[in-house]
Amino acid sequence: MFNDRTAKFLLLAAMMICVGGAFAPNWIVNQFMFGFSRALAILGLMVLWRTGLVSFGHAFYFGLGAYAVAILDSKFGVSDVFLRLMAGAVVAGSAGFLIGFIMRNYRDIFFAMLNTAISMVLFGIVVKTESLGSTDGFAISASTIFGLAPETKYPLFVIITLVGLTAALLVNFYLKTTFGKLTTAIRDNEIRVEYLGFSVAHAIHLKYTISAILAGGAGALMAMSLGQVDPESMINWTVSGELVFVTILSGPGNVIAPFIGSLVFEILRTYAFELAPQAWQLIMGATFLTIIFFLPGGIWSLIEKLGGKKNEK
């Protein structure tokens, strides 16, 4: 599990980031927390994308994770970071497992739109329900770690980095197993996969559930690092679109890509917002088009090119 290039690089990078974070100014620590939280969801979408499936509704799981944290906090006063993370991942994962029974039968645009539909149902329910915070959402109290309330954000930053590392290692490992290798096989030819003796439906169901768990965890971490949830920023279709945007920006080449892509996205957005308060969306859109036209493999393909394919798994 730890003896390929990617795993070694991940371990080294995580260590350096954790150390560096202790000296970095607050706003950079924030960018890393937001970026790495989102990267978890991108990791899941990447697994789906390798299978040839694009979901335009993963804000459903992202939002479930975030709202699980918010409701645990506001109704039950749970503030432990690990309980919150578990809750987000378990709620989203169970929902993903159940919905997976339907989703595994659909492909292409039908898969994408059915996911959107489900996410918009949740969005509608939350927006209309005053006890779920309607459009305002909830403020989330600071997270505690085993009963201790840290003074700075640094401990949460380390936890997010380590969770990201663990998820990346696990997904990297999974993609190397037989079941994991079915991803590209399914994309290329489903019938052949069936003839090899594997159930395509089962394989897709598993990947879908994995992506739901990851998106739920991402939502939970994002809610904790931001300290606020609202449906517009957590469940709306624009959030699903954002997740797909970052997935394409990152590229499907390697499990490291989602982390780099998410960071680039956060920093890009911060500066676009700062430099062009009236036209920041234009900058984001232009970047997206540039990536699609010139870097269809995402940022990762650029890294591969520069590194002479050294990092390829």
Binding site: P25, N26, F34, E232
Partner: peptide, 23 residues
């Protein structure tokens, strides 16, 4: 420094932190 208030409360929280801690 003009700033866009759109995009939801969560986004505003992130931007507010940027205003104070970064800018």
């Amino acid at each position: 420094i003009p700033l866009d208030e759109g995009g939801g409360a969560t986004k505003q929280v992130a931007e507010y932190r940027n205003l104070v801690e970064k800018r």
